[in-house]
Design a protein around this nucleic acid. Sequence first.
DNA 1: TTGTAAGCGTTATCAT
DNA 2: ATGATAACGCTTACAA
Lengths: 340, 340
Amino acid sequence: MAYTLETIAKLAGVSRSTVSRVLNEQPYVREDVRERVWAVVRQVGYQPRAAARSLVTNRTQVIGLLIPEAVSTIFTQPYFSLLIGGITEACNRHRYQLMLSLFSHRSEQESHYRRVIRSGYLDGVIVASWHEEDPLVPRLLEDGVPFVSVSRPDDTRINYVDVDNADGARMATEHLLRQGHRSVGTITGPLTMAPGRDRLAGYRQALAGRGLSVDEDLVARGDFTEEGGRAAMRSLLPHKPTAIFAASDTMAFGALQMLKDAGLAVPGDVALVGFDDLPLASIVEPPLTTVRQPIGRLGGTAVEVLLSLLEASNDGADSVQRVVLPTELIVRASCGSPIH
Amino acid sequence: MAYTLETIAKLAGVSRSTVSRVLNEQPYVREDVRERVWAVVRQVGYQPRAAARSLVTNRTQVIGLLIPEAVSTIFTQPYFSLLIGGITEACNRHRYQLMLSLFSHRSEQESHYRRVIRSGYLDGVIVASWHEEDPLVPRLLEDGVPFVSVSRPDDTRINYVDVDNADGARMATEHLLRQGHRSVGTITGPLTMAPGRDRLAGYRQALAGRGLSVDEDLVARGDFTEEGGRAAMRSLLPHKPTAIFAASDTMAFGALQMLKDAGLAVPGDVALVGFDDLPLASIVEPPLTTVRQPIGRLGGTAVEVLLSLLEASNDGADSVQRVVLPTELIVRASCGSPIH
DNA sequence: TTGTAAGCGTTATCAT
DNA sequence: ATGATAACGCTTACAA
């Protein structure tokens, strides 16, 4: 039932090696032989065993997507869906497979790491949404596993793709300032993640650019989740901001709910700008002004960078790759009309 | 650098087979030897090569999730996120890996099938969101690949897990009828998918149960997407339904937008009920009455059924497994207050 | 209880 | 241009 190279070889009247050559599109096979072999292969629907092949080539044609975050957190945030979509599409294009590795608990991570990474299942890895203190990334580095991060890390040895978070945040905040707002608050992401820090930095830059000092009471820390956005907004209310830059749409949605619950109108009482431009951003009431980041493209680019890394590791070349994609301010109703 | 069984064997002063026995928790190894081996294994951080192991065991500890639908379609529907979440969690629990296989184009499917399924990458497969005319499933059946569908198929040889779609739709429609509505329309899913057909059947049952005949003008065909919901709703407007049962929340959201655009109030002018209970259902304005299906659990159960299949294929047992989970009507504001 | 040796299905090296 | 044959790293009879 299960065909092997040997079977095909016999049927085609050649040797194993010749079949292997044909299958791998290698030269030095006579044209008619090549065709004869292909004919047999197609006829019986032969497909080489990946395990056998990988045992000798040390390649699996599989890359992993590691997201060291609770499963529930991940899939309530459309960000990840879009990211995975982009990654998947790129994988298909390059005929690579994608292994999805999400850990609910930190404790799973260790056993997972051994089982999956070290057992040679994967040619390389894309790491998304990791915190600086996570032991995973240093370990990948140490073990020499080819990987790319989808956010800018502090460590300069790490390959990454990211958007210009600070710049996006700056644009968003400047837009609010241009509308005449002077009491602009922000809901930050987790400051253990570079995007969280960078977007906060962009917010500060915008204020500094106008010669304004940052009122630390107007800086509330969130965690990129909707619930976090609600909580942060609640803590900001007493300080009466007239505008808020939330470091993610999801947090902005939470803030929006909180504002509604508090009887405040958006943008009438408080203007609101998010970050991401999730599909939902244009649907909520009022539609959310936000900083669009090309999340899908981010994922696709990560794949491409990773594959180029795998290529390079064949040659021995070995320079760090960094890709930064631009963001774009999408103005909708939630920030009020321009006052200039 | 890369340790093998041989290395460990030497370091521990035993043979390859003994190390293998220890690693696989087999009996007939002296306790002190066992400990000596483990010590070495841990010390050098040895991890068996998956490919080598799989070459001889014919097992990979990897299952695949196949979704033969455009990537973009998939990830704009939270249904899939929740499903994948449930699957992932179950995989982690059982120490299996998950390979994500989504095809954008039908043409990719064929090459994908060969590369991934037939090359022995996977022990088994979960298939979600497939249409009856899709050649994929018959092919899996023919090739004897262990798989479970996450929707009820027509073919009785297929293992599946699903919710009771007809029952859920019946509950939803009956609820609308109980409120006094007599002009109840429906937006169906694709009728090439069992859930689409079953939910329509449930709608008809409910009407029949009240001795009402179905006005076919009030049955509009959708495709489970938001855009499809909008379009279907638009086609229903001329027939002036006072209530709509949409076969998915996502379509209900689309319908909701269409109704708003048409200047109709929900539930004032038209009552609306969905199906799924996505997180968003409770957030939209007005909050959506809907039929809750335990999507995550559906995914987890699919994994469990699949693994039991893999077990069984060792023994030779081989009966079709079917699991049907219950649904629950969640009443919110979008269907108006009960009139009884 | 332990070790020896024969595969598993490929690729890769060497002859021819 | 083609065919033996030796790896690759593991499991699993079979012997001891």
